[in-house]
Amino acid sequence: MNAIEILGLVAAVVTTSCFIPQVFKISKEKSTKDISLVMYLIMALGLTLWLIYGIAIESLPVTLANGVTLLLVSWILILKLKYK
């Protein structure tokens, strides 16, 4: 693993982790009234496309970052629908 891949993995951890507080906040408060459904749907679509791209170019940082972030965003979407 070279320095650029390590940089990519660190960037992936930082950007992916920004969704974790939102998941915990929604789970704790059981409220999603201030969360935009459209924004998260568009985000999920973009992440899916990035995930496909990462797999296609065989990039571990791109694949991991977008795969994990897609899971977190999907969790938020599920909670959004559950706690309308």
Rank of each mutant, 00 (worst) to 15 (best):
N2A: 04
P61M: 09
F19A: 02
L9M: 10
S27H: 10
K82P: 03
K82I: 14
V23K: 06
N2K: 05
K28G: 12
F19D: 00
M1K: 11
T69F: 06
K84M: 11
W75Q: 10
V38K: 14
I6L: 07
E29C: 13
A65L: 03
T69R: 06
I4S: 10
I78R: 13
C18I: 12
F19C: 03
G46V: 04
F24Y: 14
E29L: 14
V14I: 15
M1H: 13
V13L: 15
V68W: 05
L45E: 12
C18S: 05
E5G: 02
V68S: 09
F24L: 13
M39I: 13
V62Q: 01
C18L: 07
I55V: 12
S17F: 14
L49K: 06
A12R: 01
V13C: 14
D34M: 03
A3I: 14
W75F: 13
Q22E: 05
L60P: 04
K84W: 13
L41N: 14
E29F: 11
A56E: 04
S74Y: 05
S27Y: 14
C18Q: 05
I35R: 00
I42M: 14
L41F: 14
I57C: 07
K80W: 03
V38T: 15
V68L: 13
N66E: 02
T32P: 01
N2P: 01
K30V: 00
I20T: 08
K25G: 03
T15C: 06
S74M: 12
A44C: 02
L71F: 15
L70F: 09
M39R: 07
L9E: 04
K28E: 15
M1C: 11
I57L: 09
D34P: 00
V23S: 07
L81N: 07
Y53D: 00
S27N: 11
V38Y: 13
A12Y: 00
I78C: 12
E5L: 03
L49C: 11
K25W: 02
K33Q: 13
L79A: 13
C18D: 04
T32D: 01
N66C: 00
C18T: 08
K28A: 14
M1Y: 10
C18P: 01
I52T: 12
I76Q: 01
V10S: 02
E58N: 11
V13N: 10
S59E: 02
Y40W: 08
V68E: 11
P61D: 12
T69V: 12
L72W: 02
A11Q: 00
I4R: 08
V13Q: 11
A56M: 06
I76H: 00
L81G: 04
I6C: 03
S74A: 11
V14W: 08
T16V: 06
K84I: 11
S36Q: 06
L7K: 13
S59D: 03
K25A: 05
I4A: 09
I78A: 14
L70R: 02
I4Y: 10
M43P: 09
A3P: 05
V73E: 00
Y40E: 06
G67M: 04
F24H: 11
I6D: 03
